[in-house]
Design a protein around this nucleic acid. Structure first.
Length: 426
RNA sequence: GGAGGGGUGGCAGAGUGGUCGAAUGCACCGGUCUUGAAAACCGGCGUCGGUUCACGCCGACCGCGGGUUCGAAUCCCGCCCCCUCCGCCA
């Protein structure tokens, strides 16, 4: 959510900046009308309530002294009717107002490149050489089944399309990556490990911005107001919902491994082969709750933590700033990390690191009390994959494949394989 | 699933229809005292919204949502959460 103060006092700028994200400018006009209407009704209703409260007090006094309050009661009766009418109107106005506010995306930071889609994204830096081979490299959807470590058919048999089953060293590699990432972020980057519920309620999803707009992307439990999490960002960011924390505890840094579930509505025909786009995938997620003043430094730091995983695994990648049109609903600025995949001859997203500023904090009621005392303020939220585990596994298979179809295990993962340096058939 | 108990300010804990946004204690902040500190004493100390240049004023909030009433933390209904016992279960 954007702040009402901003929408009110900077309406023109809000109109321009939101339209660069594809928001219909007339929504702003509607907002202004509703906001004005709300305050006008509120003024009336509160005045009537004030009068009613005064009269009620008088009635109490009169009754105590054994008098007859009938004259006052008649006036109160009138007031009650008026108040009820105004309040119905007020409830409607507020419902439409918040509905509108919940549907407006965040404003992008001034450093974000303007553009309608990913074509306007800006490459910030490219790390490592794209892997070269003296043979024709294979895609992971060929390598995995050949090695017997990924089984797409059996994933589909027990669940459906976009589900995969891992066997043997495939399952072990996934587990090794999870442990390696968690160990790195807790041991060297100062994050506290969390194991949250993988199912959340509606409020949590509204808090981070998936709802009410993107319901069709989510798996909902039948007969319950429960949803499978699309990312650990949802439980982690909502951990302190409706709390006021002391400034001294900031920044709060959480890391969690969770499976993630996405309906992938509207992506039919996209990445249908392999592990790239699944209904369920594993992810290690980083979340920070930050002081507003330093949240952009925190974004650089958090992005660096995700990059560190790729560096230690010796995977080539690049960092891209998403354009205004490609930036997600809740984010003010997003860096995507794209890993080189020889099987596709392309860089593919493996992490997305965002500063949401106070957008989620307003929705979720995340505030802090300044050291100097005074009013609570909204804090800033950041999140980033550190990393998407399935895609990391893909990158390892494709980048470290050897001519004989076996896979070289990166140095830092060997301790999770009892010291072995190869994944070979069987 | 069955039976019972409970959700009040940062914490503990009063309050069962009328100046109750809420006693009291602790914690916290400021002051007095003190060489300094502690103790003691004095004062302050919730959130949101509206309005105001400001001081302030007004409204709302005692898990959430409805209802009864001139008036609800207090009575009624629904829901959520927590605890205890039984059943079941990993």
């Amino acid at each position: 959510m954007l702040s009402r103060d901003y929408l009110r006092s900077e309406t023109q700028s809000a109109r321009t900046r939101l339209s660069s994200r594809g928001v219909d400018p007339s929504l702003l006009d509607r907002w202004v009308a509703l906001d004005f209407g709300r305050r006008s009704i509120l003024g009336d209703v509160e005045q009537l309530k004030q009068r009613r409260n005064e009269l009620s007090k008088q009635v109490g006094g009169i009754k105590r002294e054994g008098g007859d309050p009938d004259a006052l009661l008649a006036e109160v009766g009138e007031l009650k009717k008026k108040i009820a009418g105004h309040e119905d109107h007020l409830v409607e106005t507020e419902a439409e107002l918040t509905g509108l506010e919940l549907a407006l995306p965040n404003l992008t930071h001034e450093s974000v490149p303007m553009g309608a889609d990913e074509k306007s994204n800006r490459v910030e830096r490219t790390i490592g050489e794209t892997t070269s081979f003296d043979f024709e490299p294979k895609a992971h959807w060929d390598l995995g089944p050949q090695l017997g470590i990924l089984d797409f058919e059996r994933g589909a048999k027990i669940a459906g399309a976009r589900f995969t089953t891992y066997f043997g060293d495939g399952a072990r590699l996934e587990r090794a990556l999870i442990n390696f990432m968690l160990d790195l972020h807790t041991g060297e980057h100062g994050y506290r490990e969390v194991l949250p519920p993988f199912i959340v309620n509606r409020d949590a999803l509204v808090g981070t911005g998936q709802l009410p707009k993107f319901e069709e992307d989510l798996f909902k439990l039948r007969g319950h107001e429960y949803y499978l999490i699309p990312t650990a960002e949802v439980p982690l960011t909502n951990l302190h919902r409706d709390e006021i924390v002391e400034e001294a505890v900031l920044p709060i840094k959480y890391v969690a491994y969770t499976p993630c579930f996405r309906a992938e509505a509207g992506s039919y025909g996209k990445d249908v082969r392999g592990l790239i786009r699944q209904h369920q995938f594993q992810k290690v997620e980083l979340v920070q709750l930050s002081l507003p003043e330093i949240s952009y430094a925190a974004l650089e730091e958090l992005t660096g933590h995700a990059e560190r995983v790729l560096q230690v695994l010796e995977l080539p990648y690049r960092v891209v700033t998403l354009s205004t049109g490609d930036t997600g609903f809740s984010a003010a600025k997003t860096y995507d990390l794209e890993v080189w995949l020889p099987g596709q001859n392309a860089y593919r997203e493996i992490s997305s690191c965002s500063n949401c500023e106070a957008f989620q904090a307003r929705r979720a009621g995340l505030r802090y009390r300044p050291n100097t005392g005074g009013k609570p303020r909204y804090l800033h939220t950041l999140n980033g994959s550190g990393l998407a585990v399935g895609r990391t596994l893909v990158a390892i298979l494709e980048n470290f494949q050897l001519g004989d179809g076996s896979i070289r295990i990166p140095e830092v993962l060997r301790s999770y394989f009892g010291g072995r340096d190869r994944i070979a058939s069987g």
